[in-house]
Design a binder for these strands. Structure first.
Length: 427
RNA sequence: GGAGAGGUGGCCGAGCUAGGCCGAAGGCGCUCGCCUGCUAAGCGAGUAUAGGGGCUUAAACCUCUAUCGAGGGUUCAAAUCCCUCCCUCUCCGCCA
């Protein structure tokens, strides 16, 4: 959510931002509503001030035994009028907040112009794509053949876009989670939390998934509860309605959770394999920082996510999302895309964003400056560190051998009882 | 699931069954000043948030409105009365 005063005084900047995003929102419409709202507010508050004053008058008259009947009658009609105005105001307030909640964040000046993912800007590449003398297989083929991935049984017990991990795959999932959390807590300074994977509506409003993207979420029937689409939601909301002190910043949390997405509108996309599941594991990194340093913090966060891929020896590239591809709440996002030899392309494995004060304003996350000045909004950032399932996909495809076996990356072996190679058991 | 207690300012804690200068006593904490060789103590003042309007380059400031878990209702007027919901705590039951 943007600052309403900022909207009024910097309307042109916001309009430019919306245009850059290819958004169809017409800010003028909002400005008209806003003006109407303020006029109404003025009238209502003025009337209330008079009522409050006269009410005090009545109190005094009753004490002295004077007759207050005429004043009482006058106030009765005034109160009716106020009630009507309040009703009107409530209406227009709703309109205003609907508007504000639906305006996306303004892209940072460094965000490249563009329409969709084809306009994203490559920042750097890392690693060497493995050379294969054979035609590389896709992960679902490898994983299924090696007995680790079972999509069919998952489809039976639940439905499409679910998987059962078996044996080495289940173990590798667990190993990856532990490995990622260990790196982030022991090397990169994150405090680990394990939050609820069910959250209420208010939390989803705070981070910006609601009210606009209800259809992407799993909603528990007849409740105020939703399954989280990312740990960003519960972790960011830890500090909802909280005023921190400046010395506490930056706060850095990492969290492993399962994530749940309805994937509405993605029919036909990645229908095979583990790339796009309704339920998947992710280690998330969340940072609460001073506004002055949030873009340095974004680079830091990105580095923390990259460090996992480097340790695993998985080649990747970093891209800056263009304005048209930018998420609703984000001012700037880097995607990390890992190389998948089986698919022959880079696929997103992490998304690192600076939301500036967009989420902080919605969620009321502030800090009190050391100088004792007025509290101000923090900047929030988050990124995957990393998507666990997709990491397994990348390992399978990058470390596959001609005979269909898969070498286990060295850093992962201690987490898998020293297992160094996944191969089909004979017999 | 059953029975009960409770949610008030940074914290503690009055007020709530006689509804009326209550945004809210008192205390603690904090800030600024005074005082004191230093410290402690003492004295004085201040100390919520959001929104609107005024003033301003801006801030400060002034003023109004709202906020005593949330949302409704009664009333000229609600922290105080009524309804619904949420949360916390205690006891019992159940349970990984």
């Amino acid at each position: 959510m943007l600052d309403i005063k900022f909207l009024r005084t910097n309307a042109d900047e916001v309009k430019n931002g919306l245009r850059k995003r290819r958004s169809k929102l017409d800010l003028e419409q909002f400005l008209v509503i806003d003006q109407k709202r303020r006029d109404l507010l003025l009238e209502t508050e003025d009337l209330k001030a008079r009522r409050n004053q006269s009410s005090g008058e009545i109190s005094r008259m009753k004490k002295t035994g004077e007759n207050a009947d005429s004043l009482l009658a006058e106030l009765a009609t005034m109160s009716t009028r106020i009630k009507a105005l309040d009703e009107e105001l409530k209406n227009i307030d709703q309109q205003t907040s609907d508007w504000i909640m639906s305006i996306p964040n303004v892209p940072h000046p460094s965000v490249p112009d563009g329409v969709d993912e084809t306009d994203n800007l490559e920042v750097r590449t890392w690693g060497v794509k493995p050379e294969m003398t054979f035609s590389p297989k896709e992960h679902w083929e490898l994983g299924t053949a090696l007995g680790g991935l079972d999509f069919e049984t998952a489809a039976k017990i639940t439905g499409s876009r679910f998987v059962i991990l078996k044996g080495w795959a289940a173990k590798m999932e667990r190993a990856l989670i532990s490995f990622m959390l260990d790196v982030q807590t022991m090397e990169n300074g994150y405090d680990e939390v394990m939050p609820p994977v069910i959250v209420n509506r208010e939390s989803l409003m705070g981070t910006g998934q609601l009210p606009k993207f209800e259809e992407d979420l799993f909603h528990l029937e007849n409740t105020n509860y939703y399954l989280i689409p990312t740990a960003e939601v519960p972790v960011t909301n830890i500090y909802r309605d909280t005023t921190l002190t400046e010395v506490q910043l930056p706060i850095a949390h990492c969290a492993y959770t399962a994530c749940f997405r309805s994937e509405a509108g993605s029919y036909g996309k990645d229908t095979k394999g583990m790339i796009r599941q309704h339920q998947f594991d992710k280690v998330e990194l969340v940072r609460f920082v001073h506004p002055d340093s949030s873009y340095d913090e974004l680079e830091k966060l990105l580095g923390h996510a990259e460090s996992i891929l480097r340790k695993l020896g998985l080649p990747y590239r970093v891209v800056t999302l263009c304005a048209g591809d930018l998420g609703f709440s984000s001012a700037k996002t880097y995607d990390i895309e890992v190389w998948l030899p089986g698919q022959g392309k880079y696929r997103e494995i992490s998304s690192c964003s600076n939301f500036e004060d967009f989420q902080a304003r919605r969620a009321a996350i502030r800090f009190k400056p050391a100088a004792g000045k007025k509290s101000q909004l923090v900047h929030t950032l988050n990124g995957s560190g990393l998507a666990v399932g997709r990491t397994m996909v990348a390992i399978l495809e990058n470390y596959q051998q001609e005979d269909g076996s898969v070498v286990v990356p060295e850093v992962l072996r201690p987490y898998m009882n020293g297992l160094d190679r996944i191969e089909l058991k004979k017999g």
